[in-house]
Nucleic acid binder design. Structure first.
Lengths: 224, 224
DNA sequence: TTATAGGCCGAACTATTGTTCGATGTCAAG
DNA sequence: CTTGACATCGAACAATAGTTCGGCCTATAA
């Protein structure tokens, strides 16, 4: 079977590509025909099906503009791709202080934050974590000093409400009405919360008093 | 004018986003309506026009699926954005401890570092600084605790031997045989070195005892 | 109270768009 | 020469999808 594309099919493919890039949605059969010089919609249809057979595009029957480009893996993008992937956008959802619960990205927030409220973090700083559950907070006040976190620091968290021993977590202590950053150790029925600063003593809290808000993945401090 | 989105409009926006991600082409008015719980196409149309007014999407009249999402970020700062989002390679030239002078990238080093010894830092974290004079150090030991810097942290510096008041600098105190990170204030003939931790007291050193090794631009801490 | 605007519904209308099918021309194999 | 696969055309058809309009409801301003 011939797996090469005819000149016409290449033209179609290119047109689809530029059209999508330009408009954000795919072209119709007629639009393709007009720009590629094909008079009949059925011919375009015919060639589109060829492109499907050969794996260049996918189509959705009876759906207007129902086509999509299939990413051609073997291109020369691997370098670029790695670069783009290594910078992860993380929404800044608010501030964190000892006196208040952690603001979490709620359902009501949805995906929409101001551009100002997104920071770009190198993937290498946050390990394998990624996606919807990442968020960032700016630290206000000096109350996190025992966590070695200063005012103005940005902490990057993964939203989760469980933790493994040794994880650095943001917790809300319902009894004290207080948020803190500590290393988490479950010890029997109580939890040991160990400050990052080795000179500070841990506190012990009953497990049901501890609301884990998220795991701290990174702390960023800029000084310029 | 109210620029906020109603819950319904947020839902629509989210649906468009996931739909495009999933299918490669935008949804129709009826598809949106069905999934967002709107009975009438006219209402969807109405809300889509609201989204256009507020700059979230663009529409093409009389075109099926003629929607596109407007990228929120590229709106105002197209140039800046690319810059801010870019990663700057910074060589890791060694470790820093209180007990030893700061290793500096010497001429003899040249441009040659292992790939392992280079970290990628977002430009946004280090402000306008860039180029040859950037370097990074890993902190060993707990001796920098009064600078709110923990063991394992990475500090990014700009090599320079002068500083402005208020700059956070790495200095070698020849008299004490000690390296520290402090805020720098020149006061007459002596220098006040102020710990980042506001609970700690400053130290005062004669100006000629202070060897500035570099200005601290950022501190990075990873916890995974 | 009466307006008025915003949000919504339902239904009809029209334009767009994918699908189908018979017919034609070309070319290489039998 | 005949056959059959391949590519094309044109036209009609039917499903999809955007637009419009009258009416309803609620909250707020006059």
């Amino acid at each position: 079977m011939n797996n090469n594309l005819s000149a016409r099919q290449k033209k179609i493919l290119e047109y689809i590509e530029t059209f999508i890039a330009q408009n954000g949605y795919p072209p119709t059969i007629r639009e393709i025909g007009k720009h590629v010089g094909i008079a009949s919609t059925s011919v375009v249809n015919y060639n589109l099906n060829k492109l499907v057979e050969r794996g260049y595009i996918e189509r959705q029957p009876e759906v207007s503009r129902g086509l999509r480009l299939v990413s051609q893996t073997s291109e020369e993008m691997p370098v670029q791709y790695a670069d783009l992937a290594s910078l992860v956008p993380v929404p800044m959802v608010g501030k964190i202080a000892a006196s208040a619960p952690v603001p979490l990205p709620g359902e009501d927030f949805g995906y929409y934050y101001d551009a100002d409220d997104v920071i770009e973090v190198p993937q290498s700083l946050i390990g394998a974590f990624q996606g919807q559950d990442l968020f960032a907070l700016r630290v206000t006040g000096d109350s996190m000093i025992d966590a070695m976190v200063a005012e103005g620091d940005i902490i990057v968290l993964n939203r989760q409400n469980t933790a493994k021993n040794g994880d650095m977590v943001a917790v809300w202590l319902s009894e004290r009405g207080e948020t803190t950053l500590k290393k988490y150790f479950l010890e029997g029925r109580q939890v040991r919360l160990q400050p990052a600063n080795p000179m500070m003593d841990p506190i012990y809290v009953s497990a049901d008093q501890v609301n884990i808000q998220g795991r701290v993945l990174a702390v960023l401090r800029t000084l310029h």
